Computed example of a mutant assay.
Amino acid sequence: MTDAQENSPAKKHNQGAWDRMARGGHRFAQPAKDDEFKNPLKTLDRWGWLGKSIYGQRVLCLAAGGGRQGPLYAAAGAVVTVVDISGAQLEIDRKVAADRGLQLRTVEASMDDLSMFAPADFDIVIHPVATCYVPDVAPVFREVANVLCAGGIYISQHKTPTSLQAEVRRSENGYELTEPYYRSGPLPEVRGSRHREEGTLEYLHRWDQLLGGMCRAGLVIEDLVEPLHAKEDAEPNSFEDRSKYIAPYVRIKARRVGQEQARTEAGSLWLPS
Rank of each mutant, 00 (worst) to 15 (best):
Q30M: 11
N39A: 15
I153V: 14
K95N: 14
E108A: 13
Q30I: 07
P248I: 02
T2W: 09
P227W: 09
P188H: 00
V140F: 04
V96N: 07
L210S: 02
Q15F: 08
L228W: 08
L210Y: 02
A4N: 04
F37E: 03
G87Q: 10
R255I: 04
N146K: 15
S238P: 05
Y55A: 15
N39E: 14
G218A: 06
L164R: 10
D93A: 07
I246G: 01
E198G: 01
D136V: 02
D99I: 03
H205L: 00
V125A: 03
G65T: 12
M111D: 02
K11Q: 13
D241S: 05
D34R: 12
R169D: 03
E143Y: 04
L211G: 03
F122Q: 10
Y73F: 15
S184T: 15
P119Y: 05
L210M: 13
A78C: 08
L201E: 07
P135I: 00
R263N: 12
Y154S: 03
R58A: 11
F28D: 13
L102A: 06
R27C: 10
E179I: 14
T131G: 01
I153E: 09
P161D: 04
I221A: 01
D45P: 04
E108D: 08
P272R: 04
D121K: 13
L102I: 04
A64E: 04
H205V: 00
A130R: 12
V225F: 06
D93E: 06
T43F: 03
Q30Y: 01
H26V: 02
L114V: 12
A166F: 06
A145P: 00
E232D: 09
C149A: 15
Q157N: 10
Q165H: 02
M1N: 08
P71N: 13
Q15M: 15
S238M: 07
Y249R: 09
S171N: 00
A217G: 09
G56K: 15
E240M: 09
L90C: 03
N7L: 06
Q209L: 01
S163P: 03
N14L: 12
P272S: 03
D3E: 13
K95D: 14
G67R: 09
G70S: 14
A98C: 05
A64N: 05
I126T: 08
E202W: 03
L228Y: 09
E202N: 07
E176L: 14
Y133D: 02
Y154E: 00
Q89L: 14
G185E: 02
I124V: 15
C61R: 03
